[in-house]
Protein backbone atom coordinates (compact mmCIF):
# COMPACT_ATOMS: atom_id res chain seq x y z
CA UNK A 1 0.00 0.00 0.00
CA UNK A 2 1.19 3.47 -0.77
CA UNK A 3 1.20 5.50 2.39
CA UNK A 4 0.45 9.20 2.61
CA UNK A 5 4.11 10.04 3.00
CA UNK A 6 4.82 8.61 -0.44
CA UNK A 7 2.24 10.79 -2.19
CA UNK A 8 4.76 13.42 -3.19
CA UNK A 9 4.64 15.31 -6.47
CA UNK A 10 7.24 13.16 -8.33
CA UNK A 11 5.34 9.98 -7.33
CA UNK A 12 2.16 11.39 -8.79
CA UNK A 13 3.96 12.11 -12.03
CA UNK A 14 5.25 8.55 -12.15
CA UNK A 15 1.83 7.22 -11.20
CA UNK A 16 0.36 9.15 -14.10
CA UNK A 17 3.06 7.96 -16.49
CA UNK A 18 2.55 4.32 -15.49
CA UNK A 19 -1.23 4.55 -15.77
CA UNK A 20 -0.98 6.08 -19.23
CA UNK A 21 1.40 3.30 -20.22
CA UNK A 22 -1.05 0.60 -19.09
CA UNK A 23 -3.99 2.34 -20.77
CA UNK A 24 -2.03 2.57 -23.98
CA UNK A 25 -1.14 -1.10 -23.79
CA UNK A 26 -4.78 -2.11 -23.49
CA UNK A 27 -5.77 0.24 -26.32
CA UNK A 28 -3.21 -1.43 -28.58
CA UNK A 29 -4.81 -4.81 -27.85
CA UNK A 30 -8.33 -3.57 -28.48
CA UNK A 31 -7.16 -1.91 -31.71
CA UNK A 32 -5.28 -5.06 -32.81
CA UNK A 33 -2.01 -3.18 -33.22
CA UNK A 34 0.02 -6.26 -32.52
CA UNK A 35 3.47 -5.02 -33.51
CA UNK A 36 3.12 -1.86 -31.43
CA UNK A 37 1.95 -4.04 -28.54
CA UNK A 38 4.99 -6.32 -28.85
CA UNK A 39 7.23 -3.23 -29.06
CA UNK A 40 6.23 -2.34 -25.50
CA UNK A 41 8.28 -5.32 -24.33
CA UNK A 42 12.05 -5.24 -23.96
CA UNK A 43 13.40 -6.91 -27.11
CA UNK A 44 15.89 -9.17 -25.33
CA UNK A 45 14.35 -9.87 -21.94
CA UNK A 46 10.68 -9.00 -22.25
CA UNK A 47 8.26 -11.77 -21.20
CA UNK A 48 4.51 -12.14 -21.25
CA UNK A 49 3.40 -14.77 -18.77
CA UNK A 50 -0.04 -16.03 -17.83
CA UNK A 51 0.33 -18.70 -15.14
CA UNK A 52 -2.21 -21.47 -14.57
CA UNK A 53 -2.21 -20.95 -10.81
CA UNK A 54 -1.74 -17.86 -8.60
CA UNK A 55 0.73 -19.87 -6.50
CA UNK A 56 3.18 -20.23 -9.40
CA UNK A 57 6.11 -17.91 -8.84
CA UNK A 58 8.19 -18.18 -12.01
CA UNK A 59 7.43 -19.04 -15.61
CA UNK A 60 10.54 -21.13 -16.07
CA UNK A 61 9.69 -24.82 -15.86
CA UNK A 62 6.04 -24.16 -14.99
CA UNK A 63 3.00 -25.19 -17.05
CA UNK A 64 1.43 -21.94 -18.21
CA UNK A 65 -1.34 -20.55 -20.35
CA UNK A 66 1.02 -18.11 -22.07
CA UNK A 67 4.79 -18.01 -21.68
CA UNK A 68 6.17 -15.89 -24.51
CA UNK A 69 9.24 -13.84 -25.19
CA UNK A 70 9.26 -11.36 -28.06
CA UNK A 71 10.10 -14.08 -30.60
CA UNK A 72 7.17 -16.26 -29.57
CA UNK A 73 4.91 -13.22 -29.44
CA UNK A 74 5.99 -12.61 -33.02
CA UNK A 75 4.94 -16.16 -33.96
CA UNK A 76 1.53 -15.47 -32.44
CA UNK A 77 1.22 -12.17 -34.32
CA UNK A 78 2.25 -13.76 -37.62
CA UNK A 79 -0.26 -16.54 -37.02
CA UNK A 80 -3.26 -14.33 -36.42
CA UNK A 81 -2.37 -12.08 -39.37
CA UNK A 82 -1.76 -15.02 -41.74
CA UNK A 83 -4.38 -15.10 -44.51
CA UNK A 84 -5.08 -18.78 -43.73
CA UNK A 85 -5.57 -18.44 -39.99
CA UNK A 86 -9.01 -20.02 -40.25
CA UNK A 87 -10.08 -19.19 -36.72
CA UNK A 88 -9.48 -15.52 -37.51
CA UNK A 89 -12.15 -15.55 -40.20
CA UNK A 90 -14.72 -15.08 -37.46
CA UNK A 91 -15.24 -11.43 -36.64
CA UNK A 92 -14.08 -10.68 -33.14
CA UNK A 93 -13.01 -7.88 -30.86
CA UNK A 94 -12.17 -7.07 -27.28
CA UNK A 95 -12.69 -4.25 -24.84
CA UNK A 96 -10.32 -3.88 -21.88
CA UNK A 97 -10.62 -1.76 -18.78
CA UNK A 98 -7.52 -1.39 -16.60
CA UNK A 99 -7.86 -0.03 -13.10
CA UNK A 100 -6.63 -0.16 -9.48
CA UNK A 101 -3.16 0.83 -10.68
CA UNK A 102 -0.67 0.85 -7.80
CA UNK A 103 3.09 1.25 -7.86
CA UNK A 104 4.25 -1.39 -5.42
CA UNK A 105 7.95 -0.64 -5.38
CA UNK A 106 10.91 0.67 -7.27
CA UNK A 107 13.88 -1.58 -6.76
CA UNK A 108 17.57 -0.72 -6.59
CA UNK A 109 17.99 -1.28 -10.33
CA UNK A 110 15.22 1.25 -10.98
CA UNK A 111 12.66 -1.37 -12.06
CA UNK A 112 9.13 -0.30 -11.33
CA UNK A 113 6.78 -2.96 -9.99
CA UNK A 114 3.16 -2.19 -10.76
CA UNK A 115 -0.03 -3.97 -9.77
CA UNK A 116 -3.36 -3.42 -11.48
CA UNK A 117 -6.65 -5.15 -12.29
CA UNK A 118 -8.45 -5.60 -15.56
CA UNK A 119 -11.74 -6.64 -17.05
CA UNK A 120 -12.01 -7.77 -20.64
CA UNK A 121 -15.04 -8.51 -22.77
CA UNK A 122 -14.57 -10.46 -25.97
CA UNK A 123 -17.10 -10.84 -28.74
CA UNK A 124 -16.48 -13.64 -31.22
CA UNK A 125 -19.22 -14.25 -33.74
CA UNK A 126 -22.30 -13.98 -31.49
CA UNK A 127 -20.62 -15.19 -28.32
CA UNK A 128 -19.60 -12.92 -25.50
CA UNK A 129 -16.90 -13.97 -23.06
CA UNK A 130 -15.79 -12.16 -19.95
CA UNK A 131 -12.33 -12.34 -18.44
CA UNK A 132 -10.89 -10.54 -15.46
CA UNK A 133 -7.87 -10.66 -13.23
CA UNK A 134 -4.74 -8.87 -12.25
CA UNK A 135 -1.66 -7.61 -14.02
CA UNK A 136 1.77 -7.31 -12.50
CA UNK A 137 4.14 -5.29 -14.61
CA UNK A 138 7.86 -5.08 -14.12
CA UNK A 139 8.79 -1.91 -16.03
CA UNK A 140 12.18 -0.53 -16.94
CA UNK A 141 13.02 2.94 -18.18
CA UNK A 142 14.77 2.98 -21.55
CA UNK A 143 15.71 5.65 -24.08
CA UNK A 144 12.34 4.95 -25.75
CA UNK A 145 10.37 5.32 -22.52
CA UNK A 146 8.97 2.64 -20.23
CA UNK A 147 9.31 -0.95 -21.44
CA UNK A 148 8.03 -4.25 -20.02
CA UNK A 149 10.54 -6.69 -18.61
CA UNK A 150 7.85 -9.00 -17.32
CA UNK A 151 4.09 -8.86 -17.48
CA UNK A 152 2.38 -11.42 -15.31
CA UNK A 153 -1.33 -11.92 -15.98
CA UNK A 154 -3.34 -13.81 -13.39
CA UNK A 155 -6.60 -14.66 -15.03
CA UNK A 156 -9.35 -14.80 -12.41
CA UNK A 157 -10.99 -17.68 -14.26
CA UNK A 158 -7.81 -19.49 -15.27
CA UNK A 159 -8.94 -22.77 -13.73
CA UNK A 160 -12.45 -22.94 -15.17
CA UNK A 161 -12.86 -24.84 -18.43
CA UNK A 162 -12.17 -22.58 -21.38
CA UNK A 163 -15.02 -22.18 -23.82
CA UNK A 164 -12.87 -22.23 -26.91
CA UNK A 165 -9.34 -20.86 -26.40
CA UNK A 166 -7.45 -17.58 -26.12
CA UNK A 167 -5.94 -16.56 -29.43
CA UNK A 168 -4.20 -13.38 -28.37
CA UNK A 169 -2.79 -11.82 -25.19
CA UNK A 170 -5.21 -10.52 -22.61
Amino acid sequence: MTNKQAQTAPDLALQHEVEQFLYRQSELLDNKQWQSYIDLFQPEQGMYWMPLLPSHTHWDGTPSIFVEDVDLMTVRMKRVTHPNAWSQQAEWGTSHVVSNVAIESIDAAGEIHVRSRFHMMELRRDDLRHFGGSYRHQLVRTADGLRIKLQRVDLFNAQSPFEYVLQIWV
Partner: peptide, 24 residues
Protein backbone atom coordinates in the same frame (compact mmCIF):
# COMPACT_ATOMS: atom_id res chain seq x y z
CA UNK B 1 10.67 -32.46 -18.84
CA UNK B 2 11.30 -28.89 -20.01
CA UNK B 3 11.30 -29.96 -23.65
CA UNK B 4 7.92 -31.65 -23.31
CA UNK B 5 6.66 -28.69 -21.29
CA UNK B 6 7.14 -26.47 -24.33
CA UNK B 7 4.70 -28.66 -26.21
CA UNK B 8 2.23 -28.53 -23.33
CA UNK B 9 2.47 -24.72 -23.21
CA UNK B 10 2.44 -24.03 -26.95
CA UNK B 11 0.09 -26.74 -28.24
CA UNK B 12 -1.98 -28.01 -25.31
CA UNK B 13 -2.58 -24.84 -23.29
CA UNK B 14 -5.81 -22.80 -23.37
CA UNK B 15 -3.84 -20.27 -25.45
CA UNK B 16 -2.78 -23.00 -27.89
CA UNK B 17 -1.25 -21.90 -31.14
CA UNK B 18 -2.51 -25.11 -32.74
CA UNK B 19 -5.92 -26.16 -31.45
CA UNK B 20 -7.43 -22.70 -32.02
CA UNK B 21 -7.85 -23.71 -35.66
CA UNK B 22 -8.86 -27.30 -34.87
CA UNK B 23 -11.67 -26.22 -32.57
CA UNK B 24 -12.80 -23.71 -35.17
Amino acid sequence: YRRALWYFNLVNSPATLINADDLE
